[in-house]
Design a protein around this nucleic acid. Structure first.
Lengths: 248, 248
DNA sequence: CGTTGGGTTGATCGACCTCAATAAAAGTGG
DNA sequence: CCACTTTTATTGAGGTCGATCAACCCAACG
């Protein structure tokens, strides 16, 4: 899978950001049909492209931080991003992982509700919030699209509330794997091997568990032949069993 | 507080729905400035009013159910509503409580993502999803408003993820009380006494706790003079302390 | 009245956390 | 390429917070 090549990219030295425009051409953009751009006609796509800045960072770089003014919005074209909130005492809650095609800044509010940093090298189309907001004002169908993506995000957040509030550790892990599999499938097609660009700590902070619990349960699922742990990813052997654990 | 009069209304016999239109007149609607209607000009308000059906149910009645086609959307004018998801084995996660001014059906999708039932007698402006959706299509600024309300919902959902994933039981209770206080303040002005139209079980299902834990911690906060438990509500004595427990 | 639903309280249990050690992998500099 | 550090992952032993199980109270209501 294309997605599985990313771990290699990790080895770029920090600061050596690949010297490329994030998309040479919106027409041939690999994530166009997944992203907010799916709502646009060719001519509109061109107009929007004029406002776009190629954006590109290496792993571990910060895109933006919680409570800071949100000057930019991003349409992610490759790589993955961790979205999280910090409590004053350092506890962390990961509120989501952004994958190619995802839009950061859907709500177009003044301040960032969370921090975002790159888990892998990331490319994106960047817009100033102002530019993007003004463009949206001239294209009601784009606003519709934005709204429907926000509605989808809300639905995912509510599913996550069920997972956090009412599921056991094992069910949380299974739900996480099944959910991620579904998201990768939209992007790069169905596969039993799914990339895990995030650390165990990140997974724990997403599921309300400790690193140790995540590690133990992944090991146990592997011992019981439900999964195989591979470098930077996981292979799902017994999808039905995982789905049973995760079922709504 | 007006809101505190609701518990008395609870004693209406089921089936005896108060015989009144939910709002005689949009112009004088008490929740207009809070609700989706705030985006509308007087003439638009009139147009929308033509599509509206007065909706009115008693406590414990169902508004709509998870996974059913969402034929209607609602603009809540009085009362409160429990929104929840059920797992196949009966575990329940309350994903939110809707209060006057809240809109149910923000995302305008085909199927309900959760069930909703009245905690108190409820009045609302009801629209068919079709009617409302078509109306929205003619009013981009209304779509903007809808989107901004959805963005706000998303933000609340993410805050709830932090509460569910990374807070202790005591912090959960404090966050819940402080959060609800803030919401009631928007509706009926600041007050130290906040109505709790929901049961301890509902609070537990919202916070990922059992009834017993909710009860124990409320009792403890009361014993320590942080709150006073009153019929169908709570009086916050030591707001600073609760805010410290709840702080972001 | 008896029944029912909601709330409180106590005793006990266990899932997950904490603390600690080790292992494995990735980055760094000579 | 090899030593060294740093980061991430795994595993074990023991503790704890909140769950479970059970009893009881009380107000509402038929």
């Amino acid at each position: 899978m294309d997605a599985m090549t990313r771990p290699a990219e990790r080895h770029h030295h920090l600061g050596l950001c690949p010297n490329q425009k994030s998309t040479v051409d919106c027409e041939h953009c690999r994530v166009r049909t997944l992203s907010v751009c799916a709502a646009l006609e060719p001519d509109e796509l061109q107009q929007l492209d004029k406002l776009s800045h190629a954006f590109c960072v290496n792993a571990k770089q910060t895109l933006f931080e919680q409570d800071e003014p949100s000057n930019n919005v991003y349409n992610l074209t490759s790589g993955s991003v961790r979205l999280y909130k910090l409590l004053p005492d350092g506890r962390r809650q990961v509120v989501g992982f952004a994958l190619p095609g995802d839009f950061l800044g859907l709500s177009m509010v003044e301040k960032n509700a969370f921090s975002a940093d790159a888990l892998t090298p990331v490319t994106a189309c960047q817009f100033t919030r102002q530019d993007f907001s003004e463009f949206v004002d001239t294209k009601p169908h784009l606003l519709r699209r934005l709204h429907s993506m926000a509605a989808h995000e809300l639905s995912l957040a509510q599913d996550q509330m069920v997972i956090l509030g009412r599921r056991t550790a094992e069910e949380k892990i299974a739900s996480f794997l099944i959910g991620l599999r579904k998201r990768w499938a939209r992007i790069s097609g169905a596969s039993v091997t799914i990339p895990l660009p995030m650390t165990r700590q990140d997974i724990g902070d997403f599921l309300g568990l400790t690193v140790e619990t995540v590690s133990r349960l992944m090991t146990r699922l592997a011992r019981e032949k439900a999964i195989v742990i591979v470098p930077d990813g996981v292979r799902l052997l017994d999808v039905p069993r995982l789905e049973r654990l995760a079922e709504t």
